[in-house]
Design a protein around this nucleic acid. Structure first.
Length: 784
DNA sequence: CAGTGAGCGAGCTTCCGCTTGACTT
């Protein structure tokens, strides 16, 4: 038995560190937090100065038991959890649970897993920082109070009230999406006219050249643009001036969790959860450093390896030592940046993780490479018939530097229109050179609203606001979608006409062309529920919904950590007004329906409203108290209470439609709980995505019925008619179905499932019934 | 599996931040 027990948070880390420390040390992991607030009664004794009631969650019991045993057997326990607020608290909980005295237990920290860093840490142990622990405790309790007092308010006050939730992080994330959506809906696009001219000529050596130049300004109206083109009729064009300016580009910092999620989204199209899943795999197989980090720091060992790699692969002039600083004040920097563990592994052989690994390798190596050097050329072109001038610009790469391996992509909203017209190189020109105008065009361009958030751009925004942590970005994005506040989907663009004025051969002609606009892919849209909940929370709990709330309380947590404020006093200052708002809201707020009056029914004169019903957004014609029952129709998935028009609403009442007869019985189309479907002979058939229930025709439904029939026969391996037992092929392999129940076939019989006899199948069913498979343990309710 | 829409109210839900597997009809 080793003399020393070192406890870290991550098991992968434990393995690595054990190798470094040698035989006297046994390194174990506690798998993150080992205690949490009890759920009953919020787990907080509020009148008793917010005294927390901690328990060991069921899934951590084994970990705690094992650590207790080891702690007893060893001479000395070293607490080596991460050096941040949460890590300090985990160490304190370990003391509490393992019966260690915080005043003489050794606490060590390191920010990188290297031999020198770990050996240095062991030489300089410190003690637990109780102020830091109290800061974490205040954070934990505040989040519990906000979540567990606000959520029940929603259950009482929303017309749709199944498993709604609110919290310091998630509710603000939804707010961002809701406000962006409204910004887009309220956006009024204005158009301007942009002038471009294409020239031809000859360079000094007599070679033919051609290039593009841009007009003096964007014209506000077609008339202004035409006037300008008119002035250019018959003009001569000469190069008036050429300016050459050097420029440079620098590489981006190495990856943090949030920047990795953003780049993987932009370059590879991964969702944030997919990125984290793949990164976790790479981490567990020892290929990259820890993937949940807010640090851009690289260890000295890593820097040396990167330099070596650059020198051998690209040459010394490509290397430039850089130290990146974190822009984010809320960063706690308990780890390194995300980088390959071994730079000499240029790629990964696993096809699943390869693309992400390549991205991390390139980003890491580029971060220590030289600037790219550019030469920007701007040529002014004189127009003989007026005082305006045209501008041609070009960019030439003189030295590629880091661009040899990697260039960071940008978000849609950060790219300006000028950058969109990508600059190529300009042919060599000379001052006073005469040019021939091939054609000049004034094209109508429309201003665009801010784009909707992607998962990754939302993470970026949250990080900027200091809301959430690397370990919670992905789960938060999942939560707000699971709660149906937000949905990720595509939006089809609409066709829009734009005008073009063309000057060619001294003639001006007018034309229109069309473009697709407003198309979006994998963007976050708020649902009606998300909007209604956000409006409600904004109205009654504006302080928690404020974008600066987290930043403000983080300052206070820092004061607690610095010993300048007492944790339970801070909590009390927050709690008094907050709790009062909760009570006022419960007493006074009306139940929220999100109702919007669309107009009157032409035939009956009854009011038509869009509102939230118990089962989702809908249109209602007439009132509940009318003699005649109101008519109802559910909104389509892409429609919203806020934007639906009267016309679109009336369209919804056209279902159900009877299309005609097939094999002697009616085919009826409707939209149900699981989307559009056709009903025929008591069977249901889901309509294909591209089939619109409002316009679909009979001859399109026939193939659907046939398809389902063959799919069913293909899925069937064997049928025992009399016993009502079927052997079917499912997504997880063959299984047995009797009546409505499914039964798992034991592993050893999976391969020969087709040969099962009715007796064998029966035996399996009896077996499963006798030993039902363990279900996911539902949260155990404790009885006093 | 393809309904519903009023009101009352059992009995349920819920937070954020640390960490990984177990397991799927």
């Amino acid at each position: 038995m080793a003399k020393n027990l070192v406890i870290v948070e991550s098991p992968a880390k434990a393995k690595t560190i054990e190798k470094i420390l040698g035989n006297d040390f046994e390194v174990k992991s506690c798998f993150g937090h080992i205690r949490d607030l009890e759920k009953d009664d919020m787990g907080i004794d509020i009148p008793n100065n917010f005294k927390p009631k901690y328990i060991v969650p069921e899934d951590k019991e084994k970990v705690v038991k094992d650590l207790k045993k080891l702690a007893k057997e060893t001479d000395e326990v070293w607490l080596a959890t991460d050096e941040d607020r949460e890590g300090e608290a985990i160490s304190w909980h370990l003391c509490e649970v393992l019966g260690l005295d915080p005043v003489n237990t050794k606490r060590i920290v390191f920010h990188e897993i290297t031999k020198s860093a770990i050996e240095k840490a062991v030489r300089q142990p410190r003690l637990l920082d109780m102020n830091m622990v109290h800061a974490q405790q205040a954070r934990r309790i505040l989040d519990r109070i906000v979540g567990f007092e606000l959520s029940p308010v929603l259950w009482r006050k929303m017309s749709m009230r199944n498993s709604l939730s609110a919290g310091r992080v998630q509710s603000v994330a939804v707010r961002l999406i809701v406000e962006r959506e409204r910004e887009i809906n309220a956006f009024n696009s204005v158009s301007t006219f942009k002038v471009e001219a294409w020239f031809t000529g000859k360079d000094i050596s007599g070679k033919n050249i051609s290039f593009k130049a841009e007009g003096p300004t964007k014209f506000k109206t077609a008339e202004d643009a035409e006037k300008f083109l008119q002035q250019c009729v018959g003009a001569a064009y000469t190069v008036k001036d050429i300016q050459v300016k050097p420029g440079k580009k620098s590489p981006a910092a190495p990856f943090t969790t949030s920047t990795l999620q953003q780049e993987a989204s932009r370059k590879l199209g991964y969702s944030v959860s997919k990125t984290m899943l793949l990164a976790q795999k790479l981490y567990e197989s020892g290929k990259i450093t820890y993937m949940r980090t807010d640090s851009v720091n690289l260890s000295d060992t890593a820097l040396a390896n990167i330099q070596k790699e650059i020198n051998t692969s690209f040459g010394e002039k490509y290397h430039q030592h850089r130290k990146f600083k974190n822009k984010n004040e809320s960063a706690q920097e308990a780890h390194e940046a995300i980088r390959p563990t071994y730079m000499e592994n240029h790629t990964d052989d696993d096809s699943d993780t390869k693309r992400l690994y390549d991205l991390i390798w390139k980003r890491t190596i580029a971060s220590q490479m030289s600037d790219a050097e550019l030469e920007k050329t701007i040529a002014k072109i004189d127009i003989s018939t007026n005082h305006e001038e045209l501008t041609a610009s070009g960019e030439v790469l003189k030295f590629d530097g880091f661009l040899k391996v990697y260039l960071e992509s940008r978000d849609e909203e950060d790219v300006t229109e000028e950058e969109e017209d990508q600059e190529g190189s300009l042919p060599p020109l000379t001052v006073k050179q005469a040019l021939d105008l091939k054609e000049m065009k004034a094209t109508e361009r429309f201003s665009r609203p801010a784009p909707r958030y992607t998962e990754a751009s939302l993470v970026k925004k949250l990080e900027e606001l200091g809301i959430g942590r690397p370990s919670t970005y992905a789960p938060t994005i999942t939560t707000i979608q699971k709660r149906n506040y937000v949905e990720k989907r595509d939006k089809e663009g609409v066709k829009r006409e734009y005008r073009i004025l063309l000057l060619k051969d001294n003639q001006i002609s007018k034309n229109t062309d069309s473009e697709n606009t407003g198309a979006e892919k994998s963007k976050l849209f708020p649902t009606d529920l998300g909007m209604i909940v956000t409006d409600f929370l904004n109205q009654y709990f504006d302080s928690v919904m404020d974008y600066g709330f987290t930043a403000k309380i983080e300052e206070e947590f820092d004061e607690i950590a610095g010993g300048k404020q007492v944790w339970n006093k801070m909590l009390n200052n927050f709690y008094q007004p907050f709790h009062k708002a909760v009570q006022d809201t419960l007493e006074n707020a009306e139940r929220v329906k999100g109702e919007r009056l669309l107009g009157e029914d032409k035939e009956s004169g009854k009011p038509i409203v869009a509102r939230m019903g118990r089962y989702g957004p809908m249109i209602q014609i007439g009132k509940a108290e009318d003699e005649e029952k109101p008519r109802f129709a559910k909104l389509k998935a892409t429609q919203s209470i806020e934007t639906i028009t009267m016309e679109e609403a009336m369209e919804l009442f056209k279902l159900p439609r009877t299309l005609g007869q097939f094999e002697g019985s009616d085919v009826v189309v409707n939209i149900g709980r699981f989307g559009p479907y056709a009903q025929h002979d008591k069977q249901f058939y889901s309509l294909k995505k591209e089939m619109d229930p409002y316009t679909v025709e009979l001859d399109e439904v026939g193939p659907l019925i046939a398809e389902k029939r063959t799919a069913k026969s293909e899925r069937t391996i064997k049928v025992f008619e009399k016993e009502k037992i079927q052997i079917l092929k499912g997504p997880y392999g063959p299984y047995i179905k009797q009546g409505l129940r499914n039964f798992k076939i034991p592993k050893e019989k999976i391969d020969t499932a087709a040969d099962l006899t009715v007796e064998e199948a029966k035996a399996i069913i009896e077996d499963v019934k006798a030993n039902p498979p363990k279900k996911k343990a539902p949260a155990k309710k404790k009885k006093a």
